[in-house]
Amino acid sequence: MSAIDKYFYDPTFPLYHYTSISALEGIASNRTVWASHIYYLNDSAELIHAREVLREMLETKILIDGAENSQNDFAICFEDWLRNLFSSKPHNIFVFSMSQEQSLLSQWRSYTPHGKGVSVAFTPSRVATIATTNEFRLGQCIYDTASHHALLGALIVELRSRFECAEPATSENYNIHFEKYVSDILQVLSLIKHKAFEEEKEWRLISSLLPDASQKIDFRQGEGAAMLVPYTKLELGNDDWIFDNVTVGPTPHEALASSALLGFLHKHKVCRAVGSGNLPFRKW
């Protein structure tokens, strides 16, 4: 087990994905969900923030350790490589987000269309199966500074321990090393979020680096910006009753919405139970 593996693990409780009624229709019919390219998400700035926290840690280490040791050379080269990490074309890392919270007002507002939202519950075993089947890693997002430093410190230690090269420890060889493990680096950075989002209690299924020409990458229309958003499909399995339950978000006709939704879910054999988010409908 590596130093960073402990940050990727399966939950012991259900996780909830907030989405629209129309998206749920597609999920139920196709038995897939979409993992979006992390660079195109609303939270994409978090990656840059995480990178800067890591760079600050490396710069501090350089100043403390001095210039006459291999660990310092490693830190200097890693900091330099990170500076250019997002300057070229985007690395293909995809995430599918879930929350520990079944019905949270900020989630309804941020991730569902007004009056047309649902949260879909996945059991712990279902989430683990999705991760394994699709070769994704599952981790809980972390929000406080101390935990950020602990995770990024573990990443530094892990990358340093993996560096084995018959050639001298040159900048070129270090860069080759960092490129080799860029997928692991981005997966770790994807777990770091600002404390302002702590109430979301987010978990993420995170892909490994997908090649540019991968047939697994599709495109959908973005929200707001004039661009397409790359995504990849996660297979949910072909067995029946793949969701634990579905919660109806704030809507003006909750009873009617719940009744029709339950009939649809039973028809497609994806979920047996529909519940209420217990939040009043308001014009947000």
Rank of each mutant, 00 (worst) to 15 (best):
E101P: 00
T247Q: 06
S183L: 05
N92S: 14
S147L: 13
D239W: 04
V127E: 06
I185Y: 03
W34Q: 03
E164C: 13
I93W: 02
P11S: 03
Q140C: 12
M227S: 10
K195E: 07
N278Y: 12
D218S: 15
S29P: 01
S147E: 09
E52K: 13
C271I: 03
I206W: 04
A35D: 03
K283W: 12
H91D: 10
R162D: 02
S183Q: 03
K267C: 12
Q71G: 13
F8T: 01
S125H: 09
S259R: 15
N134F: 05
S125R: 09
A75N: 12
L159C: 00
E135C: 03
G153D: 01
E46C: 00
A50N: 00
Q100F: 07
N245F: 11
D65L: 07
F86C: 07
A166M: 06
D73A: 05
S20A: 04
E46V: 00
K201C: 14
L151I: 02
R272N: 14
E25P: 01
N173V: 01
S36G: 10
V182N: 02
H253M: 11
I192F: 02
K216H: 08
F178K: 01
E79M: 12
S259V: 07
Q102I: 14
D65H: 07
W108C: 06
R51L: 08
Q100S: 14
L261N: 03
D144C: 14
D5S: 12
A196N: 14
T112L: 03
H177I: 00
L205M: 08
R126G: 08
L236S: 03
G263H: 11
T132Y: 03
S171R: 10
N134W: 03
W108Y: 09
S36W: 05
E164L: 15
A28H: 02
A128H: 00
T170A: 06
L189H: 02
E235A: 05
L47H: 06
A121Q: 11
L228V: 13
P11N: 04
A121T: 10
Q221Y: 09
E198I: 14
L234I: 01
G153C: 02
L151K: 08
K269R: 15
T19R: 07
L205G: 09
